[in-house]
Design a protein around this nucleic acid. Structure first.
Lengths: 174, 174
DNA sequence: ACCATGTATGTTATAATATAACATGTCAAG
DNA sequence: CTTGACATGTTATATTATAACATACATGGT
């Protein structure tokens, strides 16, 4: 699968069901769901999913890739929002604090969380072929990490786990 | 333990023996060892540990912390090496390719590898108190990660695992 | 010894990412 | 209808990183 195919939201990888992450499926659905859940979560917490914040989340959900802050900013600016970096960075920061967006440090980029609200230490699989970022089920890894650390007397607060490699589609291509 | 105490090389944490990583021990020894092993490794591979490269590695070994590229650059410049970013970045890139230095993405920084040559997917423990970065034994984590990924048909090439938290010394302080 | 070649370093310039500080606007409680 | 808290907009700048080209330096072949 090439990158332009991946840009088609009707046939995309990486959504919340791990089994589907790198398979073709209807992405419009999971984006809509994630947005609705995000909105509910934020309200529950007495916070506001303002227009900029909502739009930033939508952009990330729709693009279904990790986007740089300036990519997001450009889209915002094109739609009449502010066009200075803090506009994007602040929205992204808010969304990250609320667990709605994850920061992919390896890419200096941000990706929408595909299962907000659920407790999770995210693990990212970054395909070097199609640039898709999938959130993997972290089962066991957080625990193994905590264990290794506590063996040295270290107490983990947050962890970043990012792997680069090839997704099934890109692996079976030249 | 505070940061100035950590700057004292005669009583430092984080070296190659996991059990000692956050304990006091003689760092001059492990720095010297690591440098010698690095030199040998590079020669084995038919490459050159030139003065800049060697000095960069020494700086990282001695400081025993993760340093930004510009921190390294400033020290180089003060010693008569070039004072432009590529000088530092190129040496760091070379050292990273040779597995002698690791990049800590969370900090936009670089740290000397404490056990070069040994096969390892590094796991970093970053103390938010004293800024010390320790390389933890990754036992099991790489495997767990590979397993989780292959469940989705994803093949990992390289992984970044970084945890932030508190080391024993900083945890027992205010 | 000399040159050809590849590799390393130095330098200039700029790109890409991120934040500080302050001004303005908005909204809801009192 | 004002006050206070929060959000957004704007200006400016800091920090991190790389591209492109020039110079030097080592090494092997002759």
């Amino acid at each position: 699968m090439n990158q332009s195919a991946r840009a088609d939201h009707a046939a995309c990888p990486g959504c919340q069901t791990p089994d589907l992450a790198f398979l073709t499926h209807d992405h419009a659905d999971c984006a809509r769901d994630a947005l609705a859940r995000a909105e509910a979560l934020v309200l529950e917490r007495g916070l506001r999913l303002t227009p900029v914040r909502k739009r930033v989340l939508q952009i990330l959900l729709e693009s279904h890739q990790a986007l740089g802050a300036y990519d997001v900013l450009n889209r915002l600016a094109a739609e009449g929002f502010g066009n200075q970096p803090p506009v994007a960075y602040r929205a992204l920061e808010f969304l990250e604090e609320q667990g709605l967006v994850h920061r992919i440090r390896r890419l200096n980029a941000f990706a929408a969380c595909m299962h907000p609200g659920e407790e999770h230490a995210p693990v990212f699989l970054i395909c070097t072929g199609c640039k898709t970022v999938a959130e993997a089920p972290a089962t066991g890894i957080g625990a193994a990490l905590g264990l290794a650390a506590s063996g040295m007397g270290f107490v983990i607060e947050r962890a970043t786990v990012e792997a680069v490699g090839k997704c099934p589609a890109c692996r079976s291509e030249p």
